[in-house]
Each structure stands twice: as structure tokens, then as C-alpha cells.
Write a protein that binds this DNA or RNA. Sequence first.
DNA 1: AAGGAAGTGGAACGGTCTTTCCGGTTCTCC
DNA 2: GGAGAACCGGAAAGACCGTTCCACTTCCTT
Lengths: 229, 229
Amino acid sequence: MFRFGYDGVMSSVTSAGTAVRPLRKDAERNRALILGAAREVYAAQGLDAGFDEIARAAGVGVGTVYRRFPERGDLVEALFEQEIDAVVARVEQAAADPDPWRGLGDFLRWGAEAQAADRGLAQVLAAAGRGHERVAAGRDRLRPAVEALVRHAQQAGVLRDDVTEVDLGIALAMISQLGDAGSSDLRDRYVTLVLDGLAVRRDGPTPLPPAQPSEDDLACVVAPARRHR
Amino acid sequence: MFRFGYDGVMSSVTSAGTAVRPLRKDAERNRALILGAAREVYAAQGLDAGFDEIARAAGVGVGTVYRRFPERGDLVEALFEQEIDAVVARVEQAAADPDPWRGLGDFLRWGAEAQAADRGLAQVLAAAGRGHERVAAGRDRLRPAVEALVRHAQQAGVLRDDVTEVDLGIALAMISQLGDAGSSDLRDRYVTLVLDGLAVRRDGPTPLPPAQPSEDDLACVVAPARRHR
DNA sequence: AAGGAAGTGGAACGGTCTTTCCGGTTCTCC
DNA sequence: GGAGAACCGGAAAGACCGTTCCACTTCCTT
């Protein structure tokens, strides 16, 4: 297992806790290059992007990526374990909104955009894609925060009381696959539609953002199946 | 191009319309085996399933599949061109319901189940997956039918008037990816939630089917990305 | 400065998928 | 019954992906 030492330099710590030497400088530099490249490649292509592509983007050999991250989950954990904490903080901020309905809406809009911008994050939050198992602890930290957000809005009488935090997660996972980085109006359209479905009561329909979905958008949301090979 | 002759036996017709001999009996039998196998394989795994797998399921050689369907679109057209007409008929039936809201709900529930049961159909309707181009004409026939269904419900004042048939298609494509064949309660839950979002007005929330989504369901709806390779 | 361990990277290997090829077989027509 | 065209099917070829290996290089410690 690796973790940052006092000066930010990685050191090896065995299971027994006996310190081993920190990484060499060139190895530390390559590790940072790999993480930077993986962040971008996973954001754009999701967790099933190959090590070969990450190595190319980092400017190192693929053997270097495999040595430093022998299992794909090693890389996923290094990238997302703390990013999930940032998501938790955002959920808690939304739950603290004195207007629970606004807090819920703010979180759903933010969540849709965050996951649209980072496909790897979307997969990690959904427990999908290679290596997602290694951030199960992060997901476990996120769940009670979203539960609190939901409960807060339900107790305020604004959110229907037969939905759970998994329903919200499913809605976000779906909506975040629509469009590209420039399609936030489109995603907002569906967040608004979902909010109209979630509201206990509402005075007529909330006007939808005018972004008209195209049939390309329809194609985006259908996964290639092939799951039980 | 091939089409059925008067006795159901395939005959070859060149572009110039000059008839050529029908398929040999063993070839006709293999073609039927391939279509039967492809129907099941595409239903379970979507359009990206390989010819090798279809050949295996059909009990023929892969060369036999390639000879009869040189392009993947050939197979997709043979399977889905008429199946789309069945969908059109179902939409028209829903549009003819004297209760437009019930008609809309019936269609959404049916559509979610039909696409859940046949991943290939879901992809074809969404213009996704290999070979979907060859059923563009079928999709062109479907669109006005769904437009009419939408218009009918909007004119009745029950469906919000800022949604289109593409919005409905997107909702169906998303919902149909939830769960397996036994999860119709789960899909119905989201159809109900979407209907509450689509309604012009409603008296409080429509009770949701009690199917609780699991986190496995969440994983189902996130596509592996990799789109811009 | 030198020894030696850590580290590098790209080719090799094995596996999968797509498509073509061709020796042999089957079926149709006369 | 036989000629010959259609058909079969599985191996081969090429491409791609995942992972390992090892000759060589770099860096750390003494």
C-alpha cells in the first residue's frame, strides 16, 4: 500500500507497517505523469480505457504504468478516493441549504454536470467500470450524505416521500450521459423534468430549458449491451 | 437485395430487377437458423454481438453467416425492418385511446418493457449500435406516429406542451436499461415518476411501484464510454 | 566514484475479434 | 445420372488489447 509521506513523496509501507524507501525521484515524476494522464483519459473515455492509452498520454512506457499500478483498481483508487470526498462535501452543502428544494435542485444540476464532465467519476459513483471496487469505501461515505439530503427535503414536505437516494443516483447517472461538455442546457432540461416528477406538488409544469434533444442525444444513452460474456 | 417470394422462399433480385434463382434449400434453412439465432443474441447482447457468436448459436460456420449477410446492416435490416412496423402499430393504438393520458402511459410502459426485453431493438430505435443505419427508414416511419401521440395528449391538455417525441424516446431508452426481464416493477417505477414530471397538472405524487432500485441497477445505466476512439 | 537496486520501455506473447479464403460437399437442372 | 454452380465451415490472416519480460538506464547509498 502507498500513501504520501510528510513531504509528499511516496513511501512504501508494507502490511506489517515497516517503512521502506520512498520512490525514486524519476519514479515519483512518472507516477505523477501517469495520474495526470489517467485523470484526463478516464474523464473522457471512462474506466475501460486501456493502460496503453494512458501510457501514451503520459509519455511513459506501458510497462511503467503496470509496474506502478499492477491492478487497475490501484489507479482508480489513487484517482477517485479523494474525489468522492469532494462530492460528499458538495452533497452536505446542498443538504445545509435552508431551502431544501433549492438545495436538492442545486445538487442534481451540479451532479449531472460533474458526471458529464468526468465519465470515470460517473462510473465510480455508479459502481461500474473496471476497478470501481476499490472505491467502495468512498461510495459508502457518500450514501448517508445523499440520504440526509433526501430526508431533509422529504421532511420539509417538498420531495415526494417514496423516493430514495438510489433513485436520485439513477436519475443522475442517466442524465449525465446526455450530450457533451457544451450540453448543460440539455441536461438541465431533464433535471427540470425529473424535479417536476419528484415534487410533492407543483403549480403546473416548470418551463423546460429550451435545449431540444436531437436523435444523436438518444443514441448516447443506450449502452452497448454485451454484459454477460 | 433480397425479399420473400410468393411462397416465402428467398429469391435474388438484382438492382436491375432481373430475377435470379431462389436460395437453395440448405441455404434457406441456414438463413432461417441464422435469423433465429441473431434475434436471440441481439435481444440479449445488443447489436455489437459478433458474427462468431451468432454462428455458434445457429450451429453454422461463421463463413456461412458472412456469405449470407456480408454487412452487419444486412442482418439488422432483415431482423428489425418489420419489427419497427410492429412498434409503429403499437404507437398508433396508444394514440387512438380516447383517454390520451392513459394512451401515453400505456405506450411508455409497453415501450420500456419491449426495449428491456430486446436490447437490439432498443439500439435500433435509438440509432445506436452496428448496422442501425439500415433501418433509418423504419425510424422515419415511427417518428410521425410518436409525434401524433404526443400532439394528441398535448391537445387534450394533459401532457406538458414543451416536450417532444425525442424526449419520450430518451426517457424510454434510459428506463429500458434498468434491471433484467424480471424487473418490470422497477421500470414501471421510473415510468410513473416520468409521467408525474410530464403531467400538466396532478394532485400530488402518483404512488410509485414499490420496487426498490438496488445499486446494481445504478451500475446498469452507466454506459462504458470509449466513444471517440 | 562506484556498486547495486530500483526503474524504464517497448517488444513479445497470448487471446479475442473481424473478415476472407478455398478444399470439399450439396443441391439443382437437364 | 451427371455436370456444375451454390454452398459450407473452419482455418488463416490481420488488427487490437492486456500483460509480462528483460536488456539497459537511472538514481541512491556508502
